[in-house]
Design a protein around this nucleic acid. Structure first.
Lengths: 341, 341
DNA sequence: TTGTAGGCGTTATCAC
DNA sequence: GTGATAACGCCTACAA
């Protein structure tokens, strides 16, 4: 077991000073060809690599970025993460990932853990708990210290920072409009509890589309489901009772479950009922019938967030005092599949 | 913007020495009550937190663990990751995540990036590229430096380290046996290219079950698919040609696609054809019909890997010279759903 | 009870 | 050309 070698080791071995070794390895003009070759050969032989931690301490930058996600079972967050990771790596950054599990407390703990020097900046989507509690002091604490922060998807106006969102309202509007244009009249909305910013926005788009096409707004046709989809049968009675000819769901799990219940009630999709779901994930692609869905372009969102963050991290400190924060809007798009006509 | 405060700042402000501050904050007996209170109050006021990087440099341990995954779109790796993250956090470690994208080169780059002090140990599953190339020098380089490494799922005998695997062979065997017991005779296997260790193991289980139940082995019934599932119709002709009454798939995507093709050919599932897939993911749960699948207990695998790693990291250095490496086997189990009888 | 000094590994400045 | 020194932030053995 050959232990990790340091500048000091090389210096001792070659009987030169540490600073000479350091310079030689950087190919400094100051050092004689002879010495440089000797040092470099030795370093190569023993596979010398500078210690990241020491460099971090010296430079006060870690080349790590902290990512805090509410969960990782939702395909959407997975793709965002991938986008972040890809972009960050390309610019020489590592990604430290933490999962808040939708809990306020875990989010706070994770942020504090990372904020003490481990990372140069944060990318995160707010946990359900945080949105419910409406407490953003831990975020402000971070930004107050001058640590750059980028929020995506689940954002808040309460914190001044860069943001990346999708046009949820517009996407829902277009989806409903699409179904109206193909002749649907009784369009149901399956949404989740309202403290999720995004659900709210999607509901707004739903209502706007109805209004603009002079369809009656029937609150009976709106079903609010709990965020965790434990109970299998919640929506079964709903469909029997309300008998819709189209359904918009705020995620693909609701959508697939809806199709399942509708089919078991003898409905054909899309002939009798059209279904569209948010999140163009694996379920949408492989369900039977495959699901027309609203792609949120998670990977692009991740890349965008990472770009904003790295730019901010590497921004000149001259113009640090009064930054103009940016909110980038990613356009969602509808992917047509078999569940609509 | 209140900048991060250091021991030095406190010392200067309170006109004491740095070491006094350090000790006072640790509630050392050496320091007078008076001084301690003064220092602690000040530290609290300015929200002092020790700098992780400095501590890492001093202690030569980062409390970070590096996780390298081949991809993150497969639900299995996602769940493993979650298990690692959960366990690691509970023991005070952060997780640095890198994705090799199934590429040998990226795997090497990521490992080198992290191996220079950023992490205390690695958890990883080998990329496809690495298994294909059969080159494990980057792993040995890491273990040779005394950095603990735990391999999971996609492992190799070529590297001496702790490992976590599932009993793939046995699981496939049991799945096939189950279908034989319910009267199936023509059992197909959809597998991926053989350089994947796990696919190979699963195929072995398939063959063993056939042999032990005196069913003929018909190579026509085995379809080897490329790892990336771009081509949609690869298996369609296969089913028409071979007309199986049961199918075992090495992942759930193959399984769901199979069901789709079979259904479009007028077959009923499970009456005409039974289907079982590896990976108990979201597709299995929500497909129509829902898919009987082999749960690999990814979260447990992740926790186990993290436990092995942290134990190894924190192991006494006395018994470091000749470690006995452990391979833990996680038992896969069959989750019965609608695609089998 | 408090402070000094040295070290973790690296780099930059300045002196020889 | 080379090397000594200080600094990044923290800790600790030892001196005062």
């Amino acid at each position: 077991m050959k232990r990790k070698i340091t500048l000091k080791d090389i210096a001792r071995e070659l009987d030169v000073s540490i600073s000479t070794v350091s310079k030689a390895l950087k190919n400094s003009e100051e050092i004689s060809r002879d010495t440089k070759e000797k040092v470099q050969a030795f370093a190569r032989l023993y596979n010398y690599r500078p210690n990241n931690i020491a460099i971090s301490l010296k430079n006060k930058r870690t080349k790590n970025i902290g990512v805090i996600l509410p969960d990782i079972v939702h395909h959407f967050f997975t793709t965002v993460f991938h986008g972040i990771e890809k972009y960050a790596n390309a610019r020489g950054y590592n990604v430290i990932a933490c999962i808040s599990d939708e809990s306020f407390d875990k989010e706070v703990i994770n942020m504090e853990m990372l904020a003490n020097g481990s990372i140069d900046g944060f990318i995160m989507a707010l946990s359900a708990g945080t949105q419910l509690k409406n407490d953003y002091n831990h975020l402000r604490q971070v930004t107050d210290q001058g640590i750059p922060l980028v929020l995506f998807d689940r954002v808040t106006d309460e914190v001044a920072c860069d943001k990346v969102v999708i046009n949820d309202e517009e996407a829902a509007y277009l989806a409903v409009k699409k179904m109206i244009n193909s002749g649907r009249k009784r369009i149901a909305l399956l949404t989740s509890e309202a403290h999720f910013n995004v659900s709210e926005k999607r509901a707004e788009g739903y209502y706007r589309a109805l209004r603009e096409h002079s369809l009656p707004v029937d609150e009976e046709l709106v079903l609010v489901l709990p965020h965790m989809y434990h109970e299998e049968n919640l929506s079964e009675g709903f469909f029997r009772r309300t008998n819709p000819d189209a359904v918009l769901c705020v995620n693909e799990i609701y959508a697939v479950r809806s199709m399942r219940h509708l089919q078991s009630q003898g409905k054909r999709i899309p002939q009798d009922v059209a279904v569209i779901g948010f999140t163009d994930g694996i379920l949408s692609r492989y369900s039977i019938p495959s699901l027309t869905s609203i792609a949120q372009h998670g990977e692009l969102m991740g890349e965008t967030a990472a770009r904003l963050l790295v730019d901010r991290i590497e921004a000149d400190f001259r113009d640090m005092d009064e930054p103009e924060y940016i909110t980038e809007v990613i356009k969602a798009s509808i992917i047509d599949r078999e569940s609509t006509d």
